[in-house]
Amino acid sequence: MGILNYKFESGNILITSLDGLLNWARLSSLWQMQFGLACCAIEMMAASASNFDIMRFGVIPRATPRQCDVMIVSGTVTLKMATRIKRLFDQMPEPRYVISMGSCSNCGGPYWEHGYHVLKGVDRVIPVDVYVPGCPPRPEALLEGIIKLQEKVRKESLAKKTVPTA
């Protein structure tokens, strides 16, 4: 039945909740901030290509944070890049979401011990909604992450919406 609660047979009259409508609109067009940083970006590109076709979920890559809903941080976050990520995240309009893709941006990955230049998890600078494990994760895993994020968006409510703080 989707978002519809009731549909009148004659005329274009539907009944649904405002939350349901807003959430449906949001989760169906999660425009994505391109943030390819390392090898995970290759998998992200593969997810965008025809075999996996991430666009069927409404995920369209955009080159500017001001048009984006979700930032997919795919790759190693260096300390030098971390301040840029924070700035770009701040430029995104709310509601905004973050998917952390791959071991590096989840927790530092192979650089966790001797990575003097690597941020041990992007959640130290921005709030993360969905973590996608793998090194790198396959495109299917990223799709699963998108679906998880859609589930999260579907359960949101205007009244209970909390603003994420970095």
Binding site: A82, C107, G108, W112, Y116, L119, K120
Partner: peptide, 20 residues
């Protein structure tokens, strides 16, 4: 200078915690 043998990873860099 990070590749010097006596280099110690800084605790914080620009307000971000560096060690795991």
């Amino acid at each position: 200078y990070p590749l010097r043998k006596d280099f110690k990873v800084p605790e914080f860099y620009n307000g971000m915690k560096v060690p795991y």
